[in-house]
Design a protein around this nucleic acid. Structure first.
Lengths: 194, 194
DNA sequence: CCTACCGATCGGTAGG
DNA sequence: CCTACCGATCGGTAGG
């Protein structure tokens, strides 16, 4: 891992824990055994650092959408829920920055962050819309259903901890069931009762 | 509204928009036509201000729990969803601070904020647990179901805007249906189809 | 990657 | 509630 990647990783940790504005460049430098000013040999500005972390997270989430299995909407939705939760589990700091700290970017860079988030949300919306069109999902308002699902998914970064009581596998299995039920899918997938 | 209440209201707006650390006391003072130092005639510290805003929001959310109708779990859950969304609609800045900015408090005050949030979350959990015990809600893991519902509810402050396409009434009606379905309640409440 | 520094701004206080 | 101020810290740069 080159120096710049190291900086990005530590910046992700600090931004997610303390928040963007509460993290100073000197503090970041200290974690890398550098002097404050030395950071600027590798990066342009604090804000560029924030955007870069957002980009890394966006890439991971986007990959989940791209690697979704083709097939019936239930299978796709399950894979989406599991993939989303896996990214959060594996990339908690970056995911946190993606969900929150992006707001502290200012106009030129802010637009890119918004676009990255919008792109992902539209991907989720597409999966749901497909299911509705095929009559598999039964919801009155697909847009609202999407917001509901995104809300349930996104907020998980607030409470999910890798060392929690539920394994990622169990968690995402059950979470997928809850999502599918909300979307009006009648019980009885591959594996039985509810 | 006395001066202190005004300060708290504007602080809520600024903290929710720019974030706690990105809001300076001078900026807050400017919005109140004061000099920076004059704020300290009414408050003790910036951090006390943050906690106070959290307290105000917590009070509103807690009131929703206290005023829940007694009766069957479905009715109670519906009222909870509607009440929660109404607080977010009516108190968006304070709600935002309650959901996010509280993290920037430090240890003595932080504990109180955590306790306020925990109390509300346990209230929600109780409503769900009741429904499960009475056999009205059908979920494998009540704790996880609670986290799911809280996630769906809490994240709404991120996208709900009072001037959006859906009225609060329509929104919360449909949101309640999605929540109830996720909790395994079969269709057909007071008002028909899905 | 360090040393040394820049101007700006921060939260908060004293004294009136 | 204002004026005037405190020490600390901020993001970033020059020059090596």
């Amino acid at each position: 891992m080159d120096r710049r990647s190291q900086i990005l990783t530590i910046a992700g940790h600090l931004f997610s824990q303390r928040g963007y504005h509460a993290t100073s460049m000197r503090e970041l430098a200290r974690h890398l055994n550098l002097q404050g000013g030395s950071l600027y040999a590798h990066i342009q500005s604090k804000e560029e650092l924030l955007l870069e972390v957002v980009r890394q997270a966006a890439e991971r989430f986007q990959k989940v959408l791209e690697e979704l299995p083709s097939g019936d909407p239930v299978t796709r939705m399950k894979a989406l829920v599991k993939g989303h939760l896996r990214v959060i589990a594996e990339e908690l700091p970056r995911a946190t920055v993606f969900f929150h700290e992006w707001k502290h970017l200012s106009p030129p860079l802010l637009e890119e962050a918004k676009a990255l988030r919008r792109r992902y949300e539209e991907g989720v919306q597409e999966v749901i819309r497909e299911g509705v069109e095929k009559g598999v999902f039964q919801v009155e308002n697909p847009r609202l259903a999407t917001l509901f699902v995104l809300s349930a998914l996104n907020w998980t970064y607030q409470w999910y901890r890798p060392d929690g009581p539920l394994s990622l596998e169990e968690l995402s299995e059950q979470y997928a069931k809850l999502v599918l039920r909300a979307l009006g899918v009648r019980e009885g997938g591959e594996d039985g009762e509810a």
